[in-house]
Write a protein that binds this DNA or RNA. Structure first.
Length: 496
RNA sequence: GACCCGAUAGCUCAGCUGGUUAGAGCAACGGACUUUUAAUCCGUAGGUCCUGGGUUCGACUCCCAGUCGGGUCACCA
């Protein structure tokens, strides 16, 4: 492989750049006054054969030179439009300058709309400006429509390079842009849903002196001036609940959480979480809210043409199954009555990795995952988790060994997790102490005691329902996209 | 972490049971062409065949190790 400096393709581009300068043409402009986007220009022509004068700008994505004429396609955010350059229209000097234009250049053109004899809306160009000379070619493939389906030839398909060079991936793949537009619209819809119900969007610390609210290994960093370790948050939960103590009755946050764990097609170390908390509500209220929110999210995805078909048609209420009953049914016995040794033996039979190292709650959870979770394809609420698995959830009314907690599963994956939030500071302290014991016994994911959070709760925390929704996975479920890297613009990669 | 697959021109790929100057299409460069659309036609240039060992008269090709990537499975409440 040649180095960039020696590469003949780059060299040719650079020579054209220099030739533009010699002709007194700036290769990099300050702006361009557009009258139409590409799509708007096509629409402006309508069914007519001759149309108005337009100024359009974008990237040259195809070029067909033909002696004293040339055809090109110009792409912008809205779509693409064909350009027709004719020497008689442009004059000798400008037509010669066109030879310095390449696929990938960003240009602006002025001209009148017309329809070619093959029926395509086209700009008959009378003036063209270089806006940004592309010194490094973009790997545009050639495209054709076969039986109404776009077929791309060559192009840019190396998965690694596509994720590493997302700017290139986006520039040459409109369908990738469409996925991220859909993601953005879905997040807007989530905000609109919560805003309309009186929730206040807030921002809580990403850098935290203690991490909590979930079971995961954190990223650790160090603050120089304070000379203390700080952790990137693994959840927003404990700060949002402090805000409810402070008098904000309904809050939510959409932000990144960070978990220092493996990377695969459903896990990125940095991912987007929506959490909300509503005072005076319990987990039953949250179930209804989650159903409504999912319907709103699915509608927003279905409104995107690229995903109109993919988005599932949700019909609340979703089925509710009891955690204990589901696990008992799968194991054929009462799971909570099993001894630690029996649980461990069951874990071995279920191919759970390293069962000897797991605490009792983790064993139960592993068994539930192995036997129940992955069977849940249609959206399903799993209710009432054992208290050992849920240190931040209130005991279930009438069954104190369980908690008022649910998780929503769909497509075999967890989409949401919610509780009637524990607001008894004395109980919370006992739960933290139990976690601390598990931690001391080697459970890396058990939490410690967060005294500052306990102090906030001791001032009086209203009863509330709270929910966490994994946004990346929700979007994957609603679009049918199977790899988390395809829903995160810049997924975490090993450095080159 | 386990198993399978892959790495060759800027991009997408071919290269047989080992054989001497490593190919194609696109992109690039030169030329022809004033309604093309995977434009077409003629010509030119472009390579550390991932890295390191080994086998062999000879390795892009076979073997070993490594690196990186992809897929599947497992793990990650």
């Amino acid at each position: 492989m040649t180095t960039d400096e020696q590469n003949f393709v780059l060299k040719a581009r650079r020579e054209k750049h220099d030739a533009l300068l010699e002709r007194g043409i700036a290769p990099y402009a300050y702006g361009f006054r557009r009258t139409h986007t590409a799509a708007a220009a096509v629409a402006a022509l309508g069914a007519a054969d001759e149309g108005e004068r337009v100024n359009v700008a974008g990237r040259i994505v195809a070029w067909r030179g033909q002696g004293k004429t040339s055809f090109a396609h110009l792409a912008d955010d809205s779509g693409r439009i064909q350009l027709y350059f004719r020497k008689d229209d442009l004059g000798e000097a400008l037509f010669e300058t066109l030879k310095l234009f390449d696929i990938g250049d960003v240009i602006g053109v002025a001209g009148t709309l017309f329809r070619t004899k093959t029926g395509e809306a086209t700009v008959r160009v009378s003036g063209a400006e270089m806006l940004a000379k592309s010194l490094r070619p973009l790997p545009f493939g050639k495209e054709e429509i076969v039986n109404g389906v776009l077929v791309r030839h060559s192009g840019f398909s190396d998965p690694e390079q596509r994720y590493r060079q997302r700017a290139v991936d986006l520039a040459v793949h409109p369908e990738v842009r469409a996925a991220f537009v859909a993601r953005s619209r879905m997040i807007s819809a989530l905000r609109a849903f919560l805003d309309a119900r009186g929730f206040l969007e807030v921002e809580t610390p990403v850098l935290q002196p203690l991490y909590g609210g979930a079971a995961a290994r954190p990223f650790t960093t160090h603050h120089n001036a304070l000379d203390i370790p700080l952790y990137l948050r693994i959840a927003d939960e404990l700060y949002l609940k402090r805000l409810v103590v402070g008098g904000f009755d309904a809050v939510y946050e959409i932000g990144h959480d960070f978990r220092n764990e493996g990377i695969d097609r459903t896990h990125n170390p940095e991912f987007t979480m929506l959490e909300w908390y509503q005072a005076y509500a319990d987990y039953s209220d949250m179930m209804v809210l989650v159903e409504q929110l999912l319907v709103a999210a699915a509608e927003s995805v279905r409104a995107q043409p690229a995903f109109a078909e993919a988005a599932p048609k949700l019909r609340p209420p979703f089925p509710r199954v009891q955690w204990v009953a589901a696990l008992d049914a799968a194991l054929g016995t009462a799971a909570l009555a099993m001894s630690d040794a029996e649980l461990r033996a069951a874990a071995v039979r279920a191919d759970v990795a390293k069962p000897d190292t797991l605490s009792r709650p983790r064993l139960l959870d592993e068994l539930f995952q192995a036997h129940v979770e992955r069977t849940l394809q249609e959206p399903t609420f799993v209710l009432d988790y054992p208290v050992e698995l849920s240190p931040l959830a209130k005991p279930k009314r009438g069954a104190p060994e369980l908690t008022e907690r649910f998780e929503l599963f769909a497509g075999g994956r967890e989409l949401a997790n919610a509780f009637s939030e524990l607001n008894d500071p004395l109980d919370q302290r006992r739960r933290f102490e139990a976690q601390a014991e598990l931690r001391a016994a080697g459970d890396e994911e058990a939490s410690g005691i967060d005294e500052d959070y306990l102090r906030a709760m001791e001032h009086g925390m209203p009863p509330m329902g709270g929910v966490g929704v994994g946004i990346d996975r929700l979007f994957m479920y609603l679009t049918g996209i199977t790899h988390i890297r395809d829903v995160i613009l810049f997924p975490t990669m090993r450095p080159e």
